[in-house]
Design a protein around this nucleic acid. Structure first.
Lengths: 225, 225, 225, 225
DNA sequence: CATGAATGAGCCTTCATTCAT
DNA sequence: TATGAATGAAGGCTCATTCAT
């Protein structure tokens, strides 16, 4: 009984601690994503991160061993989100490869837009991470292409996408164009909102893929005013 | 007489100095491009640059006011090259918008490949440059899109490119895919050589643009084995 | 009645607390002696001490006000041991000053050997302690020489030790040679065991003290093979 | 000719630089010896060292790679001095092993006294140095015993020192007593000056060594008032 | 009593920039 | 011109100490 009580107390204690942990982690991660992505991880001091997160410098080191680990965690979060949202969106789009691809591409773009600043870090901080960490992240990034790639291949198999197309490169290009929203945001923000951007890129991308005789089936995706 | 002699001597001196000047400049710029592009401008010390260029630190400050200016100069060189090579290639391709676009895209890719490391700096060092310098470079980068954009518009006007296509975005996408060679080089280098990359991207890009009834005219550009 | 009961309960409580107190104190002190002596007090963090003692950092501060006090307590323990063991050994050796001195020296060496690591702290941490604490410890250390000094003086008075010898310095030298076991342990450990060390140092020390005509009386102390 | 001139200029330049180098080195080394030895290397900040040496922090790092190297250099200087002065003093003392040993011991003590603070570092900073550096210094320290050891052995061979004595340990003890001047300086400074200290320790040490029938030959070394 | 999360001052080290030569 | 010694501000990180729970 008393041992049960103790266990319960301990569990409660553990729960409190782990909850606080995750709050802190999120707090710091968010601040780091914001500042590092905006200015580059080198340009942001740990003091600045601490200030932005409203914690002390020392505390950051309790949750993330060093600056590198923090950077790694920020990038990993984006990849986690991509890995979750893109496949889900594809499934949610039904059976038609065209709609699946459009859905997946939209999800990819939206995820990038949500983490716009952090997404840039991948391109900037290869050196700031260790080689191994860098390799691991590259592998994970490569993996985010696969859902789109499989959908393209499905479309080719079903005859709705042109057979001659290089499926892998098309998938990579779509990913690249999603990233472009972050990479060239300074340009796009003055000319498009995200929805317009996605719609137009979808039209261009599907235009390169769908065989002529099936284009009439997707006026909503292909006809942009 | 003596004044003439002096003038001559002075001119000679000027010439020598200017020659040496430009030699020094080039020497330093090349070293900076190499090191900064490889490791990021933050990660390279002025001492390392001086060593690589076989000059003293102090001398770098004589030719470039500070590290920022040096970085700026490195990036500007890439843009200079693009501004020179892409329009030239378009002109060299003749009158057909399809061939002009393919030529321009190829030139863009090749220029990026030639400065692969330095091209990345644009994406990495927005903060390391001042805001104004950054703006100036962005404008110049935007300008590199124009030759391709005009070619797309020409193609639309001539009816070989689909009218519904958003010309500006297509041009930007092509530029983006050229940059992708540098941005994702860690991936592409294991899968494609530059020529294959250009050929396949050209096929995809033109596939999205050329109207169905004209595709048969460009089997060399559209049919990839 | 109830007040009596309370008193009893309080006493029990006090006893428990005090017992736990001393257990805790010993626990922490032992851990501190081990780690500080091995690595130097600067090199050991309070967290490491807490871990080694299986308590929390906060608890250390309840028993020892701060790191300095803890260091002080560790050193004081060695001096306590010396103050207890050396006089006891001298008394246990009987009336002969020669045997008393040999016994005291042996006890001194053995005590140092038992606290070899901690004994070094005296020489390393003068600054880490406050000035006053440092002075206090120095006085106590000086006091550990007295039993040996008195024994030397007794020997001189009894005519077994040479009159011309500087008694105080001889006593200090003996203490120094005892400390040497700790100070130069990296050297001695490869060449002598503690017993051999003591025997040989005793022979040398007594050789400098005993008058020639009495040497034959102590073949066991003076003749080393 | 002009090449000769150049060489001369270069040599002059080199000479100036190397002179300045050695001045700086000495300047920093002296400051480091002073502060590190007094307070322990951990307790002294690089800023404090820089201030004491009247140079900037950065400059220290030009001459000594890091704090560890600086500490190493400080200790090495003491050992250098010992390695030079002790053998020289022994040779200068003539052929008699007794006078040679006395001379060597005096030189050892004087060298320690000259570097009193720095000599302490050996005992305090084994951890602050790397393991290899520490080993190297220990070997060099061991080597400083050899001149005294050889002199003791010579004395035994010539019959002036007792045959039964453990020569190696005696030599080590003498070294230890020399170090004691630094280790226990807080005590000795109130009781002896260096000359008195040396004289008395010499009397004690030789008292333990010289055979009874030869003692009358060295009244100046053995008779202390 | 006991815990350990949180703080922030301070340390070692690097490096852009200057300037005497 | 050209050099590189010298400077010192700033950054990453540690850890003694405190305090809410």
């Amino acid at each position: 009984m008393s041992s049960d009580a103790l266990t319960v107390a301990e569990e409660a204690h553990e729960a409190v601690r782990s909850a606080r942990n995750s709050v802190r982690t999120r707090q710091i991660l968010r601040a780091a994503a914001r500042l590092m992505a905006r200015d580059g991880s080198d340009a942001v001091s740990m003091q600045a991160l601490a200030d932005e997160a409203s914690v002390s410098v020392g505390l950051i080191y309790r949750y993330f061993g060093n600056k590198q680990d923090l950077l790694h965690a920020v990038i990993a979060e984006v990849l986690d989100d991509l890995a979750a949202r893109v496949p889900a969106a594809i499934e949610a789009a039904g059976a038609d490869p065209v709609r699946r691809l459009a859905g997946g591409f939209r999800a990819y773009c939206e995820a990038i837009a949500d983490h716009r600043h952090a997404a840039l870090l991948t391109y900037r901080e290869s050196k700031a991470l260790g080689v191994e960490a860098s390799e691991r992240l590259k592998k994970r990034e490569t993996a985010t292409v696969l859902p789109l790639l499989h959908t393209v291949e499905q479309g080719v198999a079903e005859g709705v996408f042109a057979a001659g197309v290089h499926a892998e490169l098309v998938a990579l290009d779509l990913v690249m164009l999603a990233h472009a929203w972050a990479l060239k945001h300074w340009y796009f923000e003055a000319h498009y909102d995200l929805d317009t951007y996605i719609a137009r890129q979808t039209a261009i991308g599907l235009g390169a893929l769908i065989v002529p005789e099936r284009r009439a089936d997707y006026p909503d995706l292909l006809d942009i005013r």
